[in-house]
Simulated assay, not measured.
Amino acid sequence: MDLLNALRTHRIVAIVRGDDADAALRTVLTLAEEHIPLIEVSLSGKDALDVIRRARAALGPAAPLGAGTVLTAQDAQAVRDAGADFVVTPAVCEGVAEAKRLGLPVLAGVMTPTDIVAAQRLGADAFKIFPAAQAGGAGYLKALHGPFPDAPFVPVGGVDADAAGAYFAQGATAVGVGSPLIGDAADGGSLDALRERARAFHAVVRATAAVDARR
């Protein structure tokens, strides 16, 4: 898949992790129904590989489906075999290099300029600023664009709808959203509430697109 184009198009990466594999699968399918197609199933969730397999079967071969918290070469191989077609890492790690070797695009976790250069050398397709809120939020993203003006950054960590708008205003390609979007859905919570939160994030994306169109 063309991960960079997908990030630029959809702007939201939903991060699903939970203690209930069936609920996590329902969460993935609900997000897809709500037109949030970029979904990352974190390996830190219960039975994550099985969730990825079942989600792939339900969504079909053409739908984008990512795996997160990919740290090792073994992780990259396992998620590829389970049906993931893009990889998200929390750091610049062995998982980045192995995923690229396997032909999977990578959203690589970075924090510092040194991390960004290291991820570039490994062929990362985009850069996950993590944890973004603790790093300084939208101000830190603005600072990073000084030495890396064309880098595709995806802030992750503490990104609610308001923060998403602030990151977009500072040039974020997309944002990764966990609990502010997922809530308790992946643990068996309300899917109706999940749908409402998804629509709130869509409203931010639409507002950003309207501002960009006027520039």
Rank of each mutant, 00 (worst) to 15 (best):
M1F: 09
L4E: 03
A6G: 04
H10L: 13
I15Y: 07
R17Y: 04
D19C: 09
D19A: 14
A23F: 04
A24S: 15
V28P: 10
A32C: 12
E33C: 11
E40G: 14
E40M: 07
V41C: 14
S42R: 09
L43Q: 02
G45M: 07
D47Y: 03
D47V: 06
A48N: 08
L49G: 08
D50S: 15
I52P: 11
A55Q: 01
A55S: 15
A57W: 02
A57E: 11
A62Q: 12
P64F: 01
T72Y: 03
T72W: 06
A73M: 01
A73F: 01
D75L: 04
Q77N: 12
Q77F: 00
G83S: 10
V88C: 04
T89Q: 05
E94Q: 13
E98S: 10
E98W: 05
A99M: 08
K100N: 09
R101D: 00
R101A: 13
L102A: 09
G103K: 10
L104S: 05
L104I: 07
V106D: 00
L107G: 00
A108F: 01
G109S: 00
M111P: 02
T112N: 05
D115E: 08
D115K: 03
D115A: 08
V117D: 06
A118G: 05
A119Q: 13
Q120I: 06
L122F: 12
G123P: 10
D125R: 03
D125V: 02
A126F: 09
K128N: 03
Q134P: 02
Q134Y: 05
G139R: 14
G139I: 09
L141I: 10
G146A: 15
P147A: 05
A151H: 11
F153Y: 10
P155F: 00
P155Q: 04
V156E: 12
G158N: 07
A161E: 11
A161F: 04
A163I: 14
G165V: 03
G171N: 02
T173I: 06
A174C: 04
V175L: 05
G176D: 05
V177T: 10
V177W: 02
S179V: 04
L181T: 14
I182A: 03
G183F: 04
G183E: 05
A186L: 01
G188Q: 07
G188C: 08
G189A: 03
G189S: 01
S190V: 06
S190T: 06
S190H: 06
L191H: 02
R197S: 11
A200Q: 08
H202Y: 07
R206H: 11
T208G: 14
A209W: 10
V211A: 15
D212Q: 11
A213M: 07
R214T: 15
